[in-house]
Design a protein around this nucleic acid. Sequence first.
DNA 1: CTTGATTGTTTCAAAATTATGACAAATCTG
DNA 2: CAGATTTGTCATAATTTTGAAACAATCAAG
Lengths: 233, 233
Amino acid sequence: MTIRVLIADDEPHQLELLSYNLEQAGFSVSQAQDGQQALDLAEQTMPDIIILDWMMPNMSGIDVCRALRGIMATNQIPVIMLSARGEEGDRTLGLDVGADDYITKPFSPKELVARVRAVLRRTRPMLMGDVIAFADLKLYPNKQIVERDGQRIDLGPKEFRILSLLLERPGNVFSRLQVLDHVWGHGVYVEDRTVDVHLSRLRKALNHNPQGKNHPDLIRTVRGSGYAMREPE
Amino acid sequence: MTIRVLIADDEPHQLELLSYNLEQAGFSVSQAQDGQQALDLAEQTMPDIIILDWMMPNMSGIDVCRALRGIMATNQIPVIMLSARGEEGDRTLGLDVGADDYITKPFSPKELVARVRAVLRRTRPMLMGDVIAFADLKLYPNKQIVERDGQRIDLGPKEFRILSLLLERPGNVFSRLQVLDHVWGHGVYVEDRTVDVHLSRLRKALNHNPQGKNHPDLIRTVRGSGYAMREPE
DNA sequence: CTTGATTGTTTCAAAATTATGACAAATCTG
DNA sequence: CAGATTTGTCATAATTTTGAAACAATCAAG
């Protein structure tokens, strides 16, 4: 369950240095030497976070960021921009384009690592082991426990992971294929209708109420598309 | 099995004074002169507790604390902040960033030592040799003794250490690999299934009741992941 | 209100994972 | 060193989880 970082910088020395530090910090790192390559790699490998140097040949960090935001698959991946300039205008431009954080050079590798963690904590709290709350539901990643309305709920591994996925972006619709990819992993031969079955099991477990009436259904079926968490009224 | 403290303060005199007192109190102390160094040392040596001066060159105590919290490896290490100012806002900022306690200057070395002990007692009772209680279970860390429901229980060394590990963060799931790492140590060639066997032995020992019915099982198996202490709802 | 498409559920055998008894090797104790 | 205890592995049993198929229910549009 390692966190994957993509880092793009045209200066080999800097790239190597930062990669090394990120790896030391326990991340799995892939490198790009220019903007175009970064974009390609991002699409191919779908990292958990992307670090872009502002100035790069071929395609600037800004351009890459804009492009990433335009692609459905990548537009949720958090981005950190690295910049030599320190002008306020740049910063806002960076954030405007959809970057999640902005670091001005010079900075220490330590700082970069800290920022990466901070951004991930903000955007993907589950990856960092924080408790996820949604309506009257609580999910404890470290304990692999789910509670609804204070009541403990038992879930099989697959159901737990599906719920985790849905809770990563509450409200977002996940297609059956996406669910298969994230929960089963790539290249696994399984019917997509199997997802339905697990969703059914998940619903049954979540909505079942020991005393009396069932809880309202927290999962929304989007006909023709997939499933999502539903925020109750 | 001495407790290791990292203390960071940019004023050499103060640093020396506090270090001396902490050492007198039986702690093993390492020193940092600025924030960056503190962060580095923390990652390298993984102390049991960290004391940070609020104002430091290079990186303030706040920044260091934030960074520590962002790093998986260090985010469980308790932190005490030292501050010259006494404003309420600072205090809450300090605690917001994830500090465990906050001391306003001027303070006596005695007070610092007392606070260190208090924080450790709160966060890592086992380190202080305190008795760990969990449900009707009691574990005496330095005596290597466990009792359930008042009855003395005999555990082999491995079983004792596994139980200690599970009790460090009750409810948290520990993978077989984590258990192997913590109990056997790194680079030991042992089947992961061996952990199952020891868990089985641990359970048998814990749940066996001389008079009549067995105790309820205190250990939770998390299919596909590992083991954890079973917490009440 | 019918129809075709999509989704929900139940059931069941297979697959995967975990529990545990038995035993030899290793380690400790006196 | 002898005897006792602790360890690690294996084989087998017990359990849980999974995936697919079959059928029921629901939906969206004519």
